[in-house]
Amino acid sequence: MASNALMNNYGTRAITVTKGSGSWLWDDQGKKYLDAISGIAVCGLGHAHPAVTAALSEQAATLVHASNLYNLQPQEQLAEKLRALSSMDNMFFANSGAEANEAAIKLARLHGNNKGIAVPTIVVMDNAFHGRTMATLTATGNPKVQLGFTPCLDGFVRVPFGDADAVEAAVKSNPNIVAVLVEPIQGEGGIHTPNDDYLKQLRTLCDNHDLLLMLDEIQTGNGRTGKYFAYQHADILPDVLTTAKGLGNGVPIGVCMASGKASQLMQPGSHGSTFGGNPLACSVGLAVVDTLQKDNLAERAAQLGEQLQHQLRERLSQCPHFVEVRGKGLMIGIELTHPCAQLVAAAAAKGLLITVTAERVIRLLPPLNLTDNEASLLVDTLVTLIEEFSS
């Protein structure tokens, strides 16, 4: 029974989880579930990973917090690791993806104000999701998320996702535009993947107009799509890059990275965080990054994601409610012809945890170290579920 001491913003939750191991969760009744959402793309190493447990235990016994008034070795070490992986110049550590995106938005406004632009404006996308703070809520392209929280902030214009020409038209018609903020793949929006040249087109456009190209890789980063960061599929470098979720494997952490001109915008006193970059979170981040690299889990995500998409496409091809499978790596969406939110409870009854987003898209975000047997079980259970839904 859920406690009424909690606010009701999450609604009624039917399952009480009590422990996890690898790709599996258990509830308070002892029922076992294959976790195909990983805490919504967070637990890329699965649950209770020994490297994460060891990092938490060792750092907690040494130093949990000392504030950013001082140099913190785990923070500096993680920054160096991420710089090597991303080719970005420097970074600011926060506690979540929303906070990392807030920092990105502040960088864009600094860039605009330094140019003498009175209302620095950021191009954002239809169906985007960037967080639930007031600035990231405004950047998010979902009216349901914004409902009840208006007025939203000034300084944002919206265009269709995947349409570089629409971005260019907005830039030419609005001299206040200073940045473009985009997800390489839209997650909450329905696992939408743009054309292969989309990010390259945006990079060229931003270069031509002195705009910051800002990529939200909160969900796509940390090996999820088959590269460490999704923009690496396009062979470009953004000016600003954010990530979170999979970086901490369940421990709250976010990071906003900057390169080139964007890396010099923050000055002493211009931004800060009490808990951001604390030794505990950064030690876990180091363990996660090291494990992702040592176990080649980005490559595993690419291989297994291709396998899962092929199997799902093949086995669902004759299903009347099936539209398509799309995604990259282990970020997969299965679109159906009808709203299918009821499949979440139906899947849980079969011992499988999934989510449905954009009303008609089953979203799969399993651990990157999902085994072949677990992948087969996932496909078998899901195909049966969709066939029953379509009958």
Rank of each mutant, 00 (worst) to 15 (best):
residue 136 T to A: 08
residue 375 A to F: 03
residue 163 D to L: 06
residue 339 P to V: 09
residue 114 N to I: 05
residue 3 S to I: 13
residue 15 I to Y: 06
residue 81 K to H: 06
residue 117 I to R: 03
residue 367 P to H: 12
residue 115 K to C: 13
residue 363 R to G: 00
residue 240 V to K: 12
residue 74 P to Y: 13
residue 342 Q to Y: 01
residue 336 L to F: 02
residue 251 V to E: 08
residue 274 T to W: 05
residue 353 L to V: 14
residue 376 S to F: 05
residue 115 K to L: 14
residue 200 K to A: 11
residue 248 G to V: 15
residue 122 I to N: 10
residue 334 I to F: 01
residue 58 E to N: 14
residue 210 D to P: 03
residue 274 T to G: 06
residue 293 Q to L: 14
residue 354 I to G: 06
residue 381 T to A: 04
residue 309 Q to I: 09
residue 329 G to M: 11
residue 253 I to C: 03
residue 304 L to E: 08
residue 122 I to L: 12
residue 290 D to Y: 05
residue 228 Y to Q: 09
residue 294 K to E: 14
residue 15 I to V: 15
residue 96 S to F: 02
residue 271 H to W: 08
residue 140 T to R: 06
residue 108 A to L: 03
residue 373 N to C: 09
residue 159 V to E: 03
residue 391 S to N: 15
residue 31 K to M: 14
residue 120 P to C: 08
residue 268 P to W: 14
residue 88 M to E: 07
residue 312 L to K: 03
residue 308 L to Y: 04
residue 100 A to Y: 05
residue 175 P to E: 11
residue 373 N to F: 03
residue 1 M to K: 05
residue 347 A to Y: 00
residue 300 R to S: 14
residue 283 S to C: 13
residue 76 E to Y: 07
residue 93 F to G: 12
residue 257 M to A: 08
residue 269 G to R: 04
residue 298 A to P: 01
residue 361 V to C: 00
residue 305 G to Y: 00
residue 68 N to Y: 02
residue 24 W to K: 04
residue 120 P to E: 08
residue 8 N to W: 04
residue 17 V to H: 04
residue 40 I to E: 00
residue 390 S to H: 04
residue 4 N to P: 12
residue 187 G to T: 10
residue 55 A to W: 02
residue 359 E to S: 09
residue 172 K to G: 09
residue 16 T to R: 07
residue 71 N to F: 01
residue 124 V to L: 11
residue 15 I to D: 07
residue 207 D to H: 10
residue 339 P to N: 12
residue 168 E to T: 11
residue 92 F to V: 15
residue 184 P to C: 10
residue 383 V to C: 12
residue 15 I to P: 02
residue 101 N to Y: 06
residue 381 T to F: 00
residue 224 R to T: 01
residue 33 Y to V: 06
residue 287 A to Y: 08
residue 197 D to H: 14
residue 124 V to C: 15
residue 254 G to K: 01
residue 306 E to Y: 00
residue 343 L to T: 00
residue 387 E to L: 11
residue 381 T to R: 07
residue 358 A to C: 08
residue 224 R to W: 00
residue 30 G to D: 07
residue 341 A to H: 07
residue 273 S to I: 11
residue 201 Q to I: 05
residue 56 L to E: 10
residue 307 Q to C: 14
residue 234 A to S: 15
residue 359 E to F: 03
residue 333 G to K: 01
residue 292 L to W: 04
residue 204 T to Q: 09
residue 30 G to M: 08
residue 42 V to M: 06
residue 41 A to N: 07
residue 221 G to Q: 08
residue 157 V to G: 02
residue 133 T to K: 05
residue 14 A to C: 11
residue 111 H to W: 15
residue 258 A to W: 05
residue 177 I to R: 10
residue 203 R to T: 11
residue 276 G to S: 13
